[in-house]
Simulated assay, not measured.
Amino acid sequence: MAKLGIIVASTRPGRVGLPVAQWFEGEARAHAGFAEVELIDLAEVALPFMNEPNHPRFGNYTHQHTRDWSALVGAVDAFVFVMPEYNYGYNAELKNAIDYLHNEWKYKPVGFVSYGGVSAGTRAVQMIKQVVTTLKMTPVFEAVSIPFVHQFLDEEEGLVPNEVLTAAAKSMLDELVRVEEALRPLRPALAESPKGA
């Protein structure tokens, strides 16, 4: 079975993305559709603003932080982005992390757990779909959209979901498993592409 990477997109102080992601990590582990589940926190990865001189499609990376990021993303078979909505769009840290790489993203499915106010982050998700499809990722239709996210947060328990959120998480995980399996034959050739200088 494959490996799922759950990317926590927000890095700001006071973010709610981490407890949301930790809840979804628990759902993914209980689902058991993936052999491995890894929580990837962009605040811990701490990539600087894009500073590679070469186009990422060549894999000719000059910085160790990029080589480390390449190895981390390259080892994952499917992704979930846990993301906020900033001014009707996705946040800069997520876009920066995506732009560092190219081949490592190819032919991998991606699902979205978005959160916010009345729109539940859905406008940001619609915008990021244009980005990921350019990298030949496959966004799944099923999604977890959390409106008025603070109503689900508890200081001690983290995110406390309702039945709608739990059902949405299962549906998205089911689809990620199916799509990952379908895309898997397209990825072996990528393993031989250069990953750094």
Rank of each mutant, 00 (worst) to 15 (best):
E142A: 15
F81E: 03
K136I: 15
E25Y: 12
V82F: 06
Y100D: 12
T166Y: 10
V45S: 06
A168P: 01
F34L: 08
F49M: 15
A28M: 10
L39A: 12
F148M: 15
M1V: 09
F141P: 00
H65M: 02
L94G: 07
L165C: 11
V140E: 01
N91Y: 03
E93P: 01
D41S: 05
E181D: 13
E44T: 15
S193F: 15
Q126T: 14
L42A: 12
F112A: 10
A182I: 04
D174C: 07
A2E: 10
Y61L: 11
S171L: 05
Q22P: 11
E181F: 01
G74H: 10
L190N: 11
V131P: 06
H55W: 05
M127P: 01
E142Q: 10
G111V: 09
W105Y: 08
M1T: 13
Y88E: 02
L94F: 09
P194G: 04
E155A: 10
K170T: 15
P139I: 01
P19C: 15
G89D: 00
F34C: 03
D154I: 05
W23F: 11
M127D: 11
K108A: 09
G74R: 08
A43W: 00
W105C: 12
V80R: 00
T66V: 12
S114E: 10
A35D: 14
N91F: 04
L94W: 04
V113K: 06
M172N: 03
E142G: 06
F34Q: 03
V164F: 12
G121Y: 14
T66R: 00
Y86N: 05
R15K: 05
L4K: 07
G74A: 08
K95F: 03
V125T: 14
Y90I: 07
G116F: 06
